Amino acid sequence: MRITVPTARVLAALLARPEDDHYGLELMQAAGLASGTLYPILTRLTEAGWLERRWEAIDPVAAGRPARRFYRLTAEGVVAARQALAELRAQLDGPTAAAGEARPAW
């Protein structure tokens, strides 16, 4: 899977609490991404087997809001995400790190 900076931000947000369920608005805020960027990333990660998704089990009328779709890293996804971010960091720490340039914070 190709890891772009937005994808790295999503993976970092998911890895902050890998055992938890996350929903779209939470991930948009944590990753600093718009919904039009976030949801295609979540779809690709799900299709790759890195994420599982499920609908929240609530009564929308009683809750006064629509049910949320939750996303959680799979066991394979946790390993793959950590490896992908480590490889990206290693690439960024290459020649530019020696020149004293700051690494971006996803």
Rank of each mutant, 00 (worst) to 15 (best):
E56R: 06
L73N: 00
P40W: 00
L11N: 00
D21T: 09
A16Y: 09
V10P: 01
R2E: 13
G64I: 05
L85K: 05
T96Q: 14
L27F: 07
V61C: 05
T37F: 06
D21A: 13
T96N: 11
L73T: 01
P40S: 02
L42M: 13
A62H: 06
A30P: 08
A98M: 12
L27N: 04
G64W: 11
M1C: 05
I41R: 00
T37E: 13
D20R: 14
A81S: 14
R69H: 02
E26W: 05
G24V: 12
R68T: 03
D93L: 15
V78I: 15
A48I: 07
P18A: 07
A31G: 06
L11V: 02
A8F: 07
R53E: 08
G49E: 05
A31Q: 08
P104S: 06
A30V: 07
G64V: 06
G36D: 05
H22D: 03
P66W: 04
T37A: 15
T43N: 13
T74Y: 02
P95A: 15
L38D: 00
E101L: 15
D21I: 03
P104Y: 01
A57K: 10
Y71G: 07
A31P: 01
V61K: 14
M1Y: 02
V61A: 14
R2D: 14
R17A: 14
T46Y: 07
T46G: 02
R103T: 10
L27V: 12
E47I: 08
T37P: 00
T37M: 13
S35I: 09
A16G: 12
A63F: 09
T43Y: 14
E56V: 05
L38K: 02
P18L: 04
T7D: 02
G100Q: 08
P18T: 02
R53M: 11
Y23T: 04
G24R: 07
E76D: 15
V79N: 03
L25V: 15
R103S: 09
P95R: 15
P6Y: 03
A31R: 05
G32N: 06
A30K: 12
A81G: 09
A75L: 04
T96V: 13
L25I: 14
A62Q: 13
L88V: 13
D93H: 14
P18R: 00
V10C: 04
A8I: 08
A16T: 11
E19Q: 15
P66D: 13
E26N: 06
G36C: 00
P40L: 01
P60L: 08
A57F: 03
F70T: 09
A98W: 14
R17P: 00
W55L: 14
A63Y: 08
H22L: 05
A8V: 08
A81Q: 02
T74Q: 04
A97F: 11
A12S: 14
L42P: 00
D20Y: 11
L42W: 10
H22G: 01
A67Q: 10
L14H: 07
R72P: 03
P6S: 09
Q91K: 12
A105L: 10
P6V: 05
R2G: 01
G94P: 08
R2W: 02
T4P: 05
T43L: 15
R54K: 11
R44G: 10
I58N: 08
E26L: 11
L25Q: 12
